[in-house]
Design a protein around this nucleic acid. Structure first.
Lengths: 138, 138
DNA sequence: CAGGTGTATATAAAGATTATATACACCATT
DNA sequence: AATGGTGTATATAATCTTTATATACACCTG
């Protein structure tokens, strides 16, 4: 039989002491592993119970993490079968981020409009802010 | 003696049943009244106790509302004296909104960058989203 | 039908938010 | 300095949200 690869090695450690909730740590770990291509589409993720035992968390916590990953289109679940990496899980992850970004832009636009700026002034503010923000990144 | 004008008439009704916390309803009411020029700079707001009694809320709730308004630069408080509309409370209100908008733009930019978009693509997304958002407004 | 998979419901523990009462400190006026 | 107004500070309670759990259920494959 093939040697079982540790999931902890793949998605990193998970601990109540670490910042952020447990389920979020699991989500982040898989999201990164999948977006970096370390988990190929169609591959099965560990079962709820297997992962829960390995990470020393409850089954429900794993469920919640997988639900979040499915919500983002990164994996899909099949009752009685298992949970699998989606065909274009990396693209789905990207799309989710884009959607969030778009919503934030819209929200900012409405706020700026309330402050009394006209459309072109808002465009200018956005453009300038984007430029500054991205140049700050090291 | 001059007739006392009801504050409730000025800032609108306040109720635990209404959406949002009580203190926020008070903040919104005064912010709007001031930004619309219905309360002139230098004018005294009702005292903590007077407003608390009229709105049937606790003194602490009024305090919290006034603190928020002061944080935004819309009013200022003087111990032993009272709370007053700031000289340019309307401008301060506007600036607060602009600051929020700028932060949202920055956050959106970072999110889009994480999704893999380059700077000009992000500029384009922002521009398009702003255009759409503002044209939706009736 | 046996043994795996995911699912659903009810519950508990922890934390943040909201609202309160009570006692205190400051200021202007008398 | 006494009085009666103003804002201030601390400790507390009630509520809601988030996070995590246990237990029992439903589905699928062999």
């Amino acid at each position: 039989m093939p040697e079982e690869k540790s999931t902890a090695l793949l998605i990193g450690p998970v601990s109540p002491a670490a910042p952020g909730p447990l389920y979020q740590q699991i989500v982040d770990g898989f999201r990164r592993a999948i977006s970096e291509g370390r988990l190929e589409p169609g591959l099965a993720l560990p079962s709820f119970r297997a992962l829960a035992e390995e990470l020393m968390v409850s089954l429900i916590t794993v469920k919640r993490a997988y639900e979040e990953l499915e919500r983002e289109g990164i994996v899909y679940r099949r009752q009685g079968i298992g949970t699998f990496v989606a065909e274009q899980g990396d693209a789905a992850s990207r799309d989710a981020k884009l959607k969030t970004a778009t919503e934030l832009f819209a929200k900012a636009a409405r706020e700026a409009a309330e402050a009394g700026l006209n459309t072109s002034e808002i465009q200018e503010l956005a453009s300038e802010t984007i430029r500054k923000t991205l140049s700050d990144q090291t």
